[in-house]
Nucleic acid binder design. Structure first.
Lengths: 139, 139
DNA sequence: AGATATACTGAGTTTAGCTCACTATGAGCT
DNA sequence: AGCTCATAGTGAGCTAAACTCAGTATATCT
């Protein structure tokens, strides 16, 4: 006799499973990790250079973790650090042209993977799912 | 003009975000990691001892990874290994009473967190969501 | 000027996976 | 029986994505 609690547990398990499998399905041929991709995407979405702390904030991670991701992306030439003219403690992180290009590539791959999954649903179901997930995501 | 590709990308991002936040909301006071919890839950759901390889299969991880999780749970006294009488290569992993107890505790915590999230949806919406996610999860 | 707060980072840890290679045992074939 | 191949588990070692704690440089506030 499943109750609402059961439903919650099942939904949690399904969400986890889907995310895990989707992520693993992405044997990207571009050498950018998932975390790095998220940071690139955030920068692109912002449309302007951001501080590491702001990136951390938007990514939902602690600032120290953002530093590492930026380090690796910078080493790969996908972002560049420059001093913040307004505050000498701070640095600004900007996408390089190479970063933008890589972002586009990965985005397409990820989209392909997700599309092939959600193609199992009808268009109506897709928009229902989107709607429900959005409701769950609002802060 | 959002097309099906956009929908896929949005759904992917939402799924990730929900899972990440839910997991972090779980500052468990029981000393069992998320991966360990998943294994305990799988064992409990099976209702009988399972082989590590079967656990790995159900958890969607490679067998070697299951070995490590079982190691840690066994060290904590939450599961027990015993030889499989039917196949001397194999071992069977069973929940101990302590494991069952811990599982119950964590389940309640997790359920509370997830329930408080999905309470935003009506019962009908919840079952719709469950249905859609199940469709996405079928192999 | 001094205290406190903020921005970033070095050092080290944890979690949750992974691969590769090895041992022991089972199963199928001749 | 003997050989070959497959399966079950695990040791060793790696990667990713987070974390904490502590330290330095710079801002801000009184």
């Amino acid at each position: 006799m499943p109750g609402p609690d059961d439903t919650a547990e099942q939904i949690a398990a399904l969400l986890e499973g889907i995310v895990r499998r989707q992520r693993r399905a992405l044997k990207q041929d571009v050498d950018v990790t998932h975390g790095q991709f998220r940071l690139l995407r955030t920068l692109d979405h912002a449309g302007q250079p951001l501080r590491p702390s702001e990136l951390a904030n938007q990514l939902g991670i602690v600032p120290r973790s953002a530093t590492t991701v930026v380090d690796d992306l910078e080493a790969a030439g996908l972002v560049a650090r420059r001093p913040d003219p307004a505050d000498r403690r701070a640095t600004l992180v900007a996408l390089t042209p190479a970063g933008t290009k890589v972002l586009t590539t990965i985005r397409r791959q990820r989209r392909d993977a997700m599309v092939s999954l959600i193609e199992r649903l009808t268009l109506t179901e897709q928009s229902t799912l989107l709607h429900l997930l959005t409701r769950l995501s609002d802060d």
